[in-house]
Amino acid sequence: MAIFTIDDVEKTFKSGDVSEKILKGVDLDLNEGEITALVGPSGSGKSTILTIAAGLQKATGGQVLFEGKDMTQMSQEEIRKIRSSEFGFVFQSSHLVPFLTVEDQLLLMLDVAETKLNKKQQKQEVSKVLDLVGMSHRKDAYPSSLSGGEKQRVAIARAIIHQPKMLFADEPTASLDSKRSKEVMEIIRNLTKTLKITTLMVTHDEDMLPYADRIVTMKDGLIE
């Protein structure tokens, strides 16, 4: 059953008198607990559709339905609330907060998501999730002392600690070597399957495709 529907979404970028249509009517259903990989050449519009779906930019036309509600009709504040409590994000760079320890990064996300856990429960949850990504031993470390792979594991932990319904991953392994990439993808796959998180992932790395349940190819602003 589709938890997320992208319906005839268009996006046009304007620069002065010049306008360029990047998305030309994209339709895509995402099913609960499924990992969908978006692939395609550079400029095909895969990152644009991911950021529109994640509520990070607006579509020029069409609908983006999350649990039946049209996000294109929502206010910025309504979208922010959905992003903080229902969505998780993993980007090409880990984008961790440089002055927070690994544990604090996750506690911050629980605060932002306004979970009803008390301090003790929050710490227990953090400990559990760090175990899942194999980072318990580095909970007091700052990002500057972590390797690229470790940072990305923490970013994944931050993305799923509040148990979101959707995970958006934009080339999550692009900055990692092949060994670390596989480790990270295994973690994403295991976690999303365990927690039944619906995942939309953009990748250009064919080695990552076996971890997806469905592969969608984009070309020239359309799904092939």
Binding site: A54, R83, S84, F87, F91, H95
Partner: peptide
């Protein structure tokens, strides 16, 4: 700026 953007992306007011 980058940090603020990411914090906004994850839902910080």
């Amino acid at each position: 700026i980058g940090l603020y953007g990411i914090l906004k992306a994850i839902g910080v007011k």
